[in-house]
Design a protein around this nucleic acid. Structure first.
Lengths: 211, 211
DNA sequence: GTTGCGATGTATCGGCCCGATACATCGCAG
DNA sequence: CTGCGATGTATCGGGCCGATACATCGCAAC
């Protein structure tokens, strides 16, 4: 999961660990808690030894006019890494539907083809619906056996589930009619711009590489 | 965290692993995903060797008239375990404020003294408020740098944060005025609610409208 | 000036927890 | 009587976290 996130961010631009972590924390939203270095660095090492990314130690002599930061390690995605990213991006399994997995995948939706987006959205919806049904059952069947606090927790959870299902429903509807999500809250009517909305499954988004 | 959950459930009644897991799944709400056996059994073993719980192998001869279940292991909390539970219940650290920790603690709120309940509720609120501020900053400062999907994810996260803060606020208000959570729509006042109070006065049936 | 402090930056270790997997038994339907 | 789903206990590899350590940089206080 984290592997996908790292590859995705490095596809936008090369970065060093510290930077990566901040991007991770802000972009990956609420579903995915801030990643820790105890996870990040071993994962980077793993990705490197797998050949998906390259490490480039930056010494002070590289950029003398700059603030001359002490040796950082800049990570850059490789061609194999891009393939790997595309593979991970296209697959939609059970781990894609839990909070963390869904959050990461959703973050890269503008680089995902529409069929996959729909599969993921529907899988997530199903997952949340199941959770919601479980909560309803508990409340209906055993509601009077539970103490007031537990009950309140269940109610709050149920409310959150219902809300998320509605959100997903809206996204799915938009997706089917070929709109970007921002159209929902009155963004510019810009049917073809931004994400790789209706572009055929070939080459979604032009990401800039070095010339 | 799981330790607290297990001790808490075993305080209600002795149980075997399978049962424990089901209780865990239903009671601990949405904040805490269903626990796996790969976690449960090692934890039970750990709790046993620490002396907090006892293991009692149930052979078929124990309860002949019953369905004669094949050898299960029934776990029972010990006196030391109860002390341990009380200790864990009373402490409110940073790990008490994340999703999983908060969910577990909240589940046992009816066995927690009011001062601790308040500390936990306020700590959780602060945590969510920080998350909310972070989201608002991203949306305000870098909103136009983000693609439509990432933006939508942030908005949804922000909405969930605001909603949870309101929920917590309400709970805190009720707590200060000595009401149980279900009394939100008007209830009895219980000024003498002390530590480890027995189940709060059962409120009228939950009014959940049927579609 | 130097001393301290917060942000930047890389790295490891112990430990919690998960998913997959492997067994074995029970009750029941085909 | 045979398979099959629910019940039940258990382990293993690995992802991920929190705590911790260590080093440099820029800046402000004294």
């Amino acid at each position: 999961m984290l592997e996908l996130a790292i590859l995705g961010l490095l596809q936008e631009a090369p970065m060093h660990g510290y930077e990566l972590r901040k991007e991770l924390a802000t972009k990956l939203g609420t579903l995915r808690a801030a990643i820790s270095y105890g996870t990040l660095y071993p994962t980077l090492k793993r990705l490197h030894s797998a050949g998906w990314i390259s490490e480039q130690a930056t010494e002070t002599d590289i950029v003398p006019p700059m603030t001359s930061k002490r040796g950082r390690i800049v990570y850059k995605i490789t061609a194999e890494g891009k393939e790997r990213f595309a593979d991970l991006l296209a697959q939609a399994g059970p781990e894609t539907y839990d909070d963390a997995g869904f959050g990461v995948h959703f973050t890269f939706f503008s680089r995902t083809d529409r069929a996959t987006r729909l599969r993921i959205l529907e899988g997530r919806r199903r997952r949340i619906e199941e959770r919601r049904e479980g909560l309803r059952d508990v409340l209906a069947r055993a509601g009077d056996r539970l103490d007031a606090y537990t009950l309140e927790l269940q109610r709050h959870g149920l409310d959150a589930c219902e809300r998320e299902v509605r959100w997903l429903e809206e996204l799915i509807t938009n997706e089917r009619s070929g709109r970007t999500p921002s159209a929902a809250t009155g963004g510019t009517s810009d049917p073809a711009a931004g994400p790789a909305a209706e572009a055929p499954p070939e080459e979604p988004a032009p990401h800039r590489d070095r010339p």
